[in-house]
Amino acid sequence: MIKLSNLFIRFTTRAMVPPSGSSALLSFASMIKLLNWGAVSFIIVYRCEQTYKQSDRILNIIDLVLVNKKNSNSLTNTLEHFRNLLITRPIKFHAVQFFTIEYTLLVSLASTIVTYSIIMLQNMH
């Protein structure tokens, strides 16, 4: 994404002009690719966060059923076991076990791109 933002800024500010002079088309293509990768990143993070919220909802429902209902012993044991599994092994999506996919990832990705773009714009002659 940083490479695409770099190309977009360079073509837009005319710091890099291709020999054929078609910088408007290349700038537009870089912008569309950047927006596409941004949309894909947002969708991935949004879906992962929805899964995390659903896991919390399941825990709340299990707690309500255990507290407010009179259940059989087997159902109570099963629900408690499932609840313990959800608490001890929460659902988390990782990128090769390197980082967790959350909204903080999206914020850090955007801040990195903006910071790099500002530094690049300041250093252009």
Rank of each mutant, 00 (worst) to 15 (best):
E49Y: 01
R57D: 15
S30L: 01
T78K: 13
F8R: 14
S72Q: 07
I62N: 03
K92S: 05
R89D: 06
D56A: 11
L34T: 06
D63W: 05
R83S: 09
A95I: 11
A110D: 02
K53P: 00
N77M: 13
T88Q: 08
I101H: 00
T88M: 06
T115M: 11
I118S: 04
E102L: 06
I119C: 06
N73P: 02
I91F: 13
L64Y: 15
W37S: 06
P90L: 02
H125F: 05
P18C: 06
N6W: 03
I32Y: 14
M31W: 14
T76D: 15
V114K: 09
N73W: 15
Y46D: 13
D56S: 12
L86V: 04
S111E: 14
I87P: 00
N71I: 15
S23P: 01
S5R: 10
F93Y: 05
L4F: 10
A15Y: 05
S22R: 15
F82E: 04
L66V: 03
Y116P: 01
I62V: 03
T100V: 10
I91W: 12
S30F: 01
A24P: 00
N68G: 13
P18E: 14
V96G: 00
R47M: 12
M120R: 10
K70T: 15
L109W: 06
A39P: 01
L85N: 15
N71K: 02
T88K: 14
L26D: 08
A110F: 14
S74W: 10
F99V: 14
Y46A: 12
I87M: 08
A95P: 00
F98W: 10
I118G: 00
L34V: 03
N36Q: 11
L86M: 05
